[in-house]
Design a protein around this nucleic acid. Structure first.
Lengths: 202, 202
DNA sequence: TGAACGAAACGGAACGGTTGCGTTTCGAAA
DNA sequence: TTTCGAAACGCAACCGTTCCGTTTCGTTCA
């Protein structure tokens, strides 16, 4: 029997038992792995089931299709935000600390996920918005760092972190996803000393 | 009969007659269209043949498979380099002119191609290098603009265009491919006035 | 307390239908 | 006569579903 509602909105009764959570964890984890390895288009439900050591039926008991599994996997992806609260005593020290943590946060693995869904994002606005809010933004903000620098007198009153937010993540992602090069300490130093600090001090 | 050599290296005798060139043109053009519309993974040979009004047999007489057709299509992709020779009389004018042209060159269509092959680039180094050299780099360089500015006395002797090459394309591509936003004149002004010029004048 | 039960969820295998790849065939066109 | 298009083919992969035998776990009952 065909259940239109279930096909459109997912299973009407997602399993809730004690085993359900562990199964969902395994399936979502496998989805992230495959997303990194082969991208969205080449991620097959058969491969997902095998990787998660699950039956396909189990997957379809919990979600209504591939898009829903992947979306939830990305939604649960916890990205460590960098800790802007640590006061190193100077603007440059704070920025270097943030750049290092941001570089470590945007790992090669995250880049693989972004690359894997980039094409699908163009035809799936929901997925696009999900990735942008979950993976790209919300990695932490530089406002605290700038405020501390203003308090120290290193920056004039009224300085904002807008340019930093605009430039730093874009350059890191471009390096990882487009150019395919890793992020190392040397790059972090370069970004801070040659780009971010000059922009803040202009 | 299976011809290993032909399967690995393409047809041993690519058609050379008077109709051949026109057919290749049509097929490569259709490949670019589909690449922009659906990306590499979802580009099917059936759709390619239909779009090019060609038989699949014709495609396989000219290339050995999908990867080869797409690679040649990208190789033949002509990207207009911006004209850095125009002297507007000031550094800012030259930069704005270049940013406008670069923005127009990195069209939404180019962004679609980049997005479409981003995932495949991670598993195909040849394709990756091809895209990087053909689509990303070689869009024109800012060296002439900086040299003129030095000659005018707007920049100190020894100024280089390195930072401009590093920052400008990265921000444009990030905006188009990752954030999915268009490039307009306002953005070009912002890039030049708030980022590039401050970096050059630091 | 502890053994037995039963519903729920499970893994694995298989199925039908669809799609894509690369090949072959054949009549038309140049 | 060569090249072409259109159509069809075999093969493999994928999707979503269904079936079946097994495992898990809360409940019941001794």
């Amino acid at each position: 029997m065909i259940n239109i509602v279930e096909k459109a909105n997912g299973p009407t009764h997602r399993p809730t038992g004690p085993r359900a959570e562990a199964r969902e964890e395994a399936i979502l984890g496998a989805a992230l792995e495959l997303l990194r390895e082969v991208g969205y288009d080449r991620l097959s439900m058969d491969a997902l089931a095998e990787r998660a050591r699950a039956g396909k039926a189990t997957i379809y008991r919990h979600w209504s299709g591939k898009a829903q599994v992947v979306a939830e996997a990305i939604r649960r992806l916890k990205c460590e935000r960098f800790d802007a609260l640590v006061d190193t005593g100077s603007l440059r020290g704070d920025l270097l600390n943030a750049a290092d943590q941001l570089g470590a946060s945007f790992t090669t693995e995250d880049a693989a996920i972004i690359a894997g869904v980039t094409s699908a994002m163009r035809t799936d606005p929901e997925l696009a918005e999900l990735v942008r809010s979950q993976v790209l933004n919300n990695r932490g903000d530089f406002n605290g760092i700038i405020e501390r620098a203003v308090r120290r007198g290193e920056l004039p009153a009224g300085s904002t972190a807008d340019l930093v937010h605009e430039v730093m993540p874009a350059l890191l992602i471009n390096r990882l996803v487009i150019r395919g090069e890793p992020i190392d300490a040397e790059l972090a130093n370069h970004l801070v000393d040659d780009i971010v600090l000059p922009l803040l001090h202009q």
